[in-house]
Design a protein around this nucleic acid. Structure first.
Lengths: 112, 112
DNA sequence: TTGACGTTTGCCGATATCGGAATATGATTG
DNA sequence: CAATCATATTCCGATATCGGCAAACGTCAA
């Protein structure tokens, strides 16, 4: 096995900068592929491929509108990511005791 | 350019299942590489490589303890991911007006 | 039907991943 | 210094990515 497939889960899907941009843009509302591509400065096939990935993990839906396909957000899948990272919230909010050790050892642990 | 380097940012670093497991495990406290590897059922070089990636994006720190290197969490980098996904919270919490359109169009948009 | 438009897919090259095995580096102890 | 333990790195093969370009598909209108 090589690298995990980008289509395997949401974590992989949003690991790509351009796909994140697509999702953000879609918060403003639906849009056809061409418009998204233009607005984000990517080629139309490029946008189409990214949308495919987002579709396969369920972050995006489309509906037909004439010749166009209006893509729109279905961000429920992001909830899992939000909750997973939220599991670390107390570690960055509170002055965590173990974190204090780190700070004290910052000079000693001169990594790289 | 091919795929974005896994070391480029936190999003890519946590796109890997095993690295996520390492982070979760480290919530329980520091640990040397061998222990982490054993507890997660991966080889020592494997764990070492993943830790390197996590180190390079700043999610993990280590301090020396004799021959060992005790790895510990520095989850501040996860905050960005948490906040980014949080930007979509209202879209999955409230009955979003645009989401209603989607639901109504579910049958029509019989993708795949 | 033919044509035009919007979108998807296929193929390509370059690159980077991940896992495994062997080896190298580093640090401690005798 | 030599030996040992803990960890890191290198090399390899297999695979999947991403971007670009060209071609295929689908849909609507005349």
């Amino acid at each position: 096995m090589a690298r995990a497939a980008t289509t395997s889960d949401v974590f992989n899907a949003i690991a790509e900068q351009q796909r994140r941009e697509i999702l953000v843009l879609l918060r403003a509302g639906e849009g056809p592929v061409t418009e998204l591509a233009q607005e984000l400065g990517m080629t139309q096939p490029g946008a189409s491929k990214h949308l495919r990935v987002l579709r396969e993990v369920g972050l995006v839906r489309y509906r037909r509108a004439g010749k166009q396909r209006l893509y729109g957000l279905d961000p429920r899948g992001l909830r899992g990511v939000h909750e997973w990272t939220g599991g670390f919230e107390r570690f960055w909010n509170e002055s965590f005791d173990r974190l204090d050790e780190y700070v004290q050892d910052l000079k000693q642990a001169r990594q790289e």
